[in-house]
């Protein structure tokens, strides 16, 4: 059993993604809205990519398409060359609100996805779940109820829950937007740490440019109406990065003014 556990925890699956000419429309009360307009993008194995843009720019829609929760109207998303047709265990999503299940305790939540992973005994699953709780520093709270946790702790548990089935790709949809600044800063450090330890491909959606620069290897800038990728910025600052670092601030400044340019042109 110990060996199998080792095997499970020491496997570092990762995948590359390609988005090819994806379009997606939504019908709203004021007519159709083009959420994604001919979006193409390649993401390498083990890359940490941040999608940035104002609301309505389609960044969350693209994330949902990659997750398999939504289907593109045309074009396709491929994982390691295979088209994505629905949700799958190779891609886990961490949502913006805490989507933890209040009827389960902390460990129960982490076990939820694991229970649906075949080839493991329940005992092994429990050990795996404990490992991931330890990784996000929540092992002391395994039997706490969700409502007893702070916002930051909840998002740590949500992170453990999405890491536990050992997906190739981790999709994070504005996971820290509801947290206070102090908690967020601590989580920036932790998420970089997890990325280095688990070597996953991570796509991180945010509207906070600083956050994106702090976390990503690459920042992909979206603009709305219609949702398009405007520009991409590689970020080669040394890790672990601190959000208050000067170089980081300079780069975010640059990206923010680019963003402003696109949205100003849009509103004219």
């Amino acid at each position: 059993m110990q060996e199998k556990l080792h095997e499970e925890i020491n496997a570092f699956p990762t995948a590359k993604l390609s988005i090819e000419h994806v379009c997606k429309d939504f019908t709203t009360s004021s007519g159709p809205v083009r959420a994604l307009d001919d979006v193409s993008l390649n993401i390498n194995e083990g890359e940490f990519v941040c999608f940035v843009g104002p609301s309505g720019c389609g960044k969350s829609t693209l994330l949902n398409i990659i997750a398999g929760l939504e289907k593109p109207d045309s074009g396709m998303a491929l994982i390691d060359g295979t088209p994505i047709t629905g949700p799958g265990r190779d891609r886990m999503v961490m949502f913006q609100e805490h989507a933890l299940f209040p009827w389960l305790d902390v460990i129960g939540n982490v076990m939820f996805g694991l229970k649906q992973k075949p080839n493991l005994t329940d005992k092994e699953r429990l050990e795996v779940a404990k490992y991931y709780l330890f990784l996000v520093k929540m092992d002391r709270f395994a039997h706490s109820n969700i409502h007893e946790l702070s916002g930051g702790m909840r998002q740590r548990v949500a992170l453990a829950r999405s890491l536990a089935p050992n997906p190739k790709i981790l999709l994070m949809d504005e996971p820290f937007s509801a947290l206070d600044a102090m908690t967020r800063e601590r989580l920036y450090g932790d998420i970089q740490d997890v990325w280095e330890k688990r070597r996953k491909t991570i796509i991180f959606v945010t509207h906070n440019v600083r956050e994106a620069v702090c976390l990503g290897n690459r920042v992909v800038l979206f603009s709305p109406h219609p949702g398009r990728i405007r520009e991409q910025f590689p970020v080669s600052l040394p890790r672990p990065r601190n959000i208050n670092n000067h170089d980081l601030a300079d780069l975010s400044q640059e990206i923010t003014s680019a963003l402003k340019g696109y949205t100003a042109a849009e509103s004219d």
Partner: peptide, 12 residues
Amino acid sequence: PIYARAARTMGS
């Protein structure tokens, strides 16, 4: 609805 969405991504 987020509960059902989360469950779907975890393979339910």
